[in-house]
Amino acid sequence: MDKMKLRRKLMEQRACLSPERRRANAVGIRETLLDQPWVQMAGLVACYWSIGSEPETHGLVFALWKHGATVMLPVHKSDDDLDWAVYDGPDTLAPGRSGIMEPVDARRGVEAIRTAALVIVPALAVDARTGVRLGRGGGSYDRALARVGPNVPTVALLHDGELIDGVPAEPHDQAVRYAATPVGLTRLMR
């Protein structure tokens, strides 16, 4: 299956998830991640503010921040690359270029992700064998992940059934080390 067809199929499946299922998924993912010592010890976390049918991250971002982590969220640039700014509580967000909530803090630049001790990214699917993630097709997170050091944990958040075999990959596609689903965390081969 090509990327476009797979994206369409996954988006249709996500659209069928009830609000109750989405809330339960968010809680499961959040609790799974917060139970990991390497998540608890991460001083600087790059995450994202979820939209639509993505696994919800609002509670995760807030919990990381309340537990003392500095959380950076992306700021979408006009060239679809990702700048980064610090989240300092729910009152420090405003709608960005695409209507996605972004921190109002000073921009740290596209290279700021290099300093993160943990990187959490969205995905529509992740290949269970290779860790290659399928995003929405803009390449923003592939560019950001290419800047992350080789020993930094990278985690894609998924709904059940989105950790699959056979995600189509191109040379620019970046892999993640972990996939977090409502039922647990899977370490992926790199």
Rank of each mutant, 00 (worst) to 15 (best):
V75N: 04
P19N: 03
G59A: 12
T154R: 06
I51V: 13
A106M: 14
T115N: 11
Q13S: 14
V132L: 03
A123C: 05
D35C: 15
R108L: 10
D35R: 04
I120M: 01
V110N: 05
G52T: 15
N25Y: 13
D35L: 12
S50T: 02
G137K: 09
P95I: 10
A146D: 06
R107M: 07
S98T: 09
R14W: 02
P95D: 07
L6M: 13
L6P: 06
A123S: 04
E12I: 01
H76G: 13
V39W: 06
A42N: 03
A144Y: 05
A46M: 02
L82T: 03
A146Y: 07
D91T: 13
G59E: 15
S78W: 15
G43H: 04
F62Y: 10
C16R: 14
L6R: 15
T32I: 02
L44I: 06
R23T: 14
S53K: 09
L6S: 12
I29S: 04
T70A: 04
K66F: 03
E31A: 08
E102V: 09
D105Y: 15
Y48T: 00
I51M: 09
I120K: 07
P103L: 09
R14Q: 06
G131R: 03
V148Y: 00
L17W: 08
V126G: 00
D127Y: 01
H76A: 07
A106S: 08
T92Q: 13
G109N: 04
R114H: 05
G149K: 07
G109L: 01
V121Y: 08
I29A: 06
T154W: 01
R133G: 02
T92S: 15
E20M: 11
L93D: 05
E111C: 05
M101R: 09
N151G: 14
L124C: 12
D88L: 13
T92M: 08
R7N: 11
M11T: 15
T57W: 02
H58T: 15
P103A: 12
R133K: 09
